[in-house]
């Protein structure tokens, strides 16, 4: 059943947890890499904004389960509202099957947030090819394949949308991150291509390019390692994961942005 066929209000974003006189058919979003860092903040924000949320984890089912329980606390119909799915972006098979699993669970798929990603830093000239190809394969190959696999389900919905989490490194470049920057640059290009290819069919596709964001990984770094980055950032501080999540929510809401990459970098070198 679609929103056009039934006398049902299509939400979100005003479909908070409370009761409603009219049955609510919530929009569904799939967020990859949802158990930690930026992805976790995106999932938390989207659940509280009233979306049905499917999020992925790679291997640590217990971490995903714990997060799932936290998210489900105090939510009505919580199993229908939030679910975790295992996926490895490096596995073509698991990527191919994921959108159908999500659609089966929630009955629809309206949006995809391609957040999962990895990096493997080091001097490129001495780096083993297998290491940098792994980054390219997961970040670009896995993300692009997943997006293609999700397209049929997305295009069945009235206002489908894709958000890609790229990186400032993919636009400005970063020493020690050649393959990461290549993969993220490819995603910026993929965002443009997809937006151009499916724009007429109503698919909105945009990307974000976060700069230096405070995640668990950053918390263990010595300030000397990143002071120079903050010094070159107009806001003179790191970004917070919740600020990245807000930008993702903005891009998911209907609008005239297409094929754009929004920098969330506190004004880095601007």
């Amino acid at each position: 059943m679609t929103s056009k066929q039934a006398n049902i209000t299509l939400q979100p974003a005003d479909c908070g947890v409370g009761a409603s006189a009219v049955p609510v058919l919530r929009k569904t979003v799939l967020v990859t890499g949802g158990t930690r860092g930026i992805g976790r903040a995106i999932v938390t924000k989207l659940v509280s904004d009233g979306w049905n949320v499917g999020f992925t984890y790679r291997s640590e089912a217990s971490v995903a389960d714990l997060f799932l329980q936290t998210l489900r606390e105090g939510i009505m119909d919580s199993e229908q509202r939030v679910q975790a799915f295992a996926v490895d972006l490096a596995s073509e098979e698991s990527v191919r099957n994921l959108p159908a699993q999500v659609e089966t669970h929630f009955g629809r798929l309206d949006a995809l947030v391609n957040n999962a990603g990895l990096t493997d830093d080091g001097a490129f000239l001495t780096m083993d090819a297998a290491r940098w190809q792994r980054v390219l394969n997961a970040n670009f190959g896995g993300t692009a394949r997943l997006t293609l696999a999700a397209l049929p389900a997305l295009l069945r919905q009235p206002d489908p949308s894709v958000v890609v989490v790229a990186s400032l490194a993919g636009i400005s470049g970063k020493e020690g991150q050649v393959s990461y920057a290549t993969s993220k640059g490819a995603l910026v290009g993929f965002t443009q291509w997809l937006g151009r290819r499916y724009g007429e069919q109503g698919l909105r596709v945009n990307a974000i390019a976060p700069g230096f964001i405070r995640t668990e990984m950053v918390n263990v770094l010595e300030p000397e390692m990143y002071d120079h980055i903050l010094a070159a950032t107009a806001l003179k501080r790191m970004g917070e994961v919740a600020e990245v999540a807000s930008a993702v929510v903005f891009l998911l809401s209907p609008g005239y942005l297409q094929g754009s990459t929004l920098r969330i970098d506190g004004g880095f070198k601007r």
Partner: peptide, 14 residues
């Protein structure tokens, strides 16, 4: 744009 954007990221980094 896939190839060109990817290589822009690569070239600026390397």
């Amino acid at each position: 744009p896939m190839r060109s954007r990817a290589l822009v990221g690569a070239i600026k980094s390397l």
